[in-house]
């Protein structure tokens, strides 16, 4: 087995029972479960955007609490389902806009998308720009919340290809998705989250009751 990049033990967030899971280098791991169960909240807690009740989160062998929060979030990036923007145009949101310019076409975005007002872009364009923004600076882990919810099939494929490349170059992805087909297509392993806890499933649609994670 490849080395572990993210290790979560008995993490208690909100009303959910303790969650334990791990991510290995190069892996895409999916999380599915009923709506409103707290999947987004779990991702936010892993990014330290939300206080946790108890449990530990480790990036390689460094605990979350031992790292300054901005540095932790630079390594463990959470991308919300609805991305937020703080400037007028997309360009101002990037660390190196020139490097991003060359990657726009891979996600089927036009060249002009960087300089048009954010408010005029479509939801799908904003979603893909948020992904490019979140991948800047090569974080160790991406925590994705429904990253293709507003995309057509072609754009979805383009995003999935980019995510596979990210994982192949040594990244790890924890992906929350409602789409079972997407989970089985892109995921290497699968977790199911509900009020009974977080269990590893052999198939994204089914839950393996006998095996508890990790």
């Amino acid at each position: 087995m490849a080395d572990r990049v993210l290790q979560i033990d008995d993490l208690v967030v909100g009303d959910l029972p303790p969650v334990s899971l791990c991510l290995h280098v190069g892996e895409i791991v999916t999380v599915r479960g009923p709506s409103g169960i707290g999947k987004s909240r779990l991702l936010r807690a892993i990014a330290d955007l939300e206080p946790t009740v108890s449990g530990t989160i480790m990036l390689r062998n460094i605990a979350l609490s031992a790292m300054p929060a901005p540095k932790w979030r630079d390594r463990v990036r959470y991308l919300a389902a609805e991305p937020g923007w703080w400037a007028e145009t997309a360009r101002a949101h990037f660390r190196e806009p020139s490097a991003v310019q060359t990657r726009l076409s891979a996600l089927m975005l036009t060249e002009t998308v960087m300089d048009r007002p954010i408010a005029e872009l479509s939801t799908g364009e904003r979603q893909r720009l948020a992904l490019l923004r979140g991948m800047e600076g090569a974080p160790a882990v991406l925590l994705l919340d429904e990253p293709t919810s507003a995309l057509d099939p072609e754009s979805t494929q383009a995003v999935q290809t980019m995510l596979r490349h990210f994982a192949a170059r040594g990244g790890a992805i924890l992906l929350v998705t409602h789409n079972a087909a997407q989970a089985s297509e892109i995921g290497d392993r699968h977790y199911h989250l509900d009020l009974q806890g977080c269990r590893e499933a052999s198939h994204p649609a089914k839950v393996a009751h006998e095996s508890t994670s990790p």
Partner: peptide
């Protein structure tokens, strides 16, 4: 959303 996006990016 904007504040949390900025925080989430480090």
């Amino acid at each position: 959303p904007a504040i949390e996006a900025r925080l989430a990016l480090g």
